[in-house]
Design a protein around this nucleic acid. Structure first.
Lengths: 195, 195
DNA sequence: TCAGATTGCTTGACAGTGTCAAGTCGTTCT
DNA sequence: AGAACGACTTGACACTGTCAAGCAATCTGA
């Protein structure tokens, strides 16, 4: 394999993230796990941020898959809206450190990485069209609605990951999913009320 | 002053946070700015996290003040709800690095710092009672509603700070405040629709 | 065929970090 | 006077990201 080391480096990054969290992700550790010298990664990437950007890009691709699956499972635009929000939170709970990495500018500034930036944007567009449909609007006219719903899902995910939610949120993952569903439904319930 | 050095250390921390962001906040830098040796801080605090916890505590106190001011400016529970959400986001925009510090468990795990934890909880209780009033419920029966609203404000703040919001959100601070108001109103609009 | 360039790394060094351990110096207590 | 203590300082260690140089194998072109 030509890019054997390169992909080993990225794999090592993902492994460290999932096993030790964000703070375990150092470039020396990545090299160690990939079984190469501490400078080998910089042969393939100009700097640390470029390595992280590649990992972030793969993260947004996975998030996009979560969203697509949620949308495919439902037809009704209102139900789709709450489902896609749940999918977002579930992605965060499934990949906590990766999620944090994806949304910390001091780790990766997406403005400097066009590819990753484009991938990130695509995870925004699908929710936008779903939410717009729920409101009976065109996507470009539903910016505030998209932001409101996205913020709610993102805030919920962030606060849960950081352990800032009251314990009452549920102990098992199943209970948590249920609670997330209830909370997201509080956004979509405005449609029901408006009918 | 007896606690001269101690408060100089905390001040130095806040200064570094506001001037250089989270990544500028190192204990060596704190000591440097406070004009003491790199080990002096550990004479007053057992470890790095304890210093940060004290800073975080002061942050939650300030956040609480923002909330109180918002509630005092409005009587109507529904308007209060969106105002308190705006106040939350405004605090984050006014003190970006402090806000990040307050909500990152790997920086400060509030479970280990009872005082700071209590202060943090108090910033949750005021919104809870306001939101409950808007719903005509008792605070303890409005947990989901509180979480929904809090998540929205928190997500909005986080995404804005991390530069993840579409540029369309507004360039000047005044435009941004207006946009935040519109978005928060999308949560409270469910009350209006329900009437 | 064989010098020279390129590829794919490794090794070494440097300044920065948090923290453990020990040292210093002035005051205070006995 | 001497011991103890408070308020630090100094030094060291392992860790980090990154700059610089080195080095063996492979490819290129004459």
């Amino acid at each position: 394999m030509k890019d054997d080391v390169r992909s080993k480096i990225l794999d090592a990054g993902l492994t460290l993230l999932s096993e030790g969290g964000l703070q375990a992700l150092s470039m020396r550790a990545v090299a160690r796990i990939a079984g190469v010298s501490h400078q080998a990664p910089y042969h393939y990437f100009p700097d640390r941020e470029s390595i992280l950007a590649e990992i972030v890009k793969s993260g947004f691709e996975t998030l996009h898959q979560y969203e697509v699956r949620a949308v495919e499972a439902e037809q009704d635009p209102v139900k789709r809206t709450s489902e896609i929000g749940c999918a977002y939170v579930q992605f965060a709970l499934d990949h906590p450190a990766l999620f944090q990495l994806m949304f910390r500018r001091e780790m990766v500034d997406l403005d400097n990485f066009e590819e990753a930036h484009t991938t990130a944007i695509s995870t925004f567009e699908l929710p936008q069209s779903v939410i717009a449909a729920a409101h009976g609007k065109k996507p470009e006219d539903a910016l505030n609605e998209t932001i409101a719903c996205w913020s709610m899902a993102h805030g919920l995910a962030t606060l849960m990951l950081e352990g800032k939610m009251p314990e009452a949120l549920g102990e098992t993952r199943k209970e948590q999913d249920q609670r997330v569903r209830e909370v997201m439904a509080l956004y979509t319930s405005r449609f029901i009320a408006a009918r």
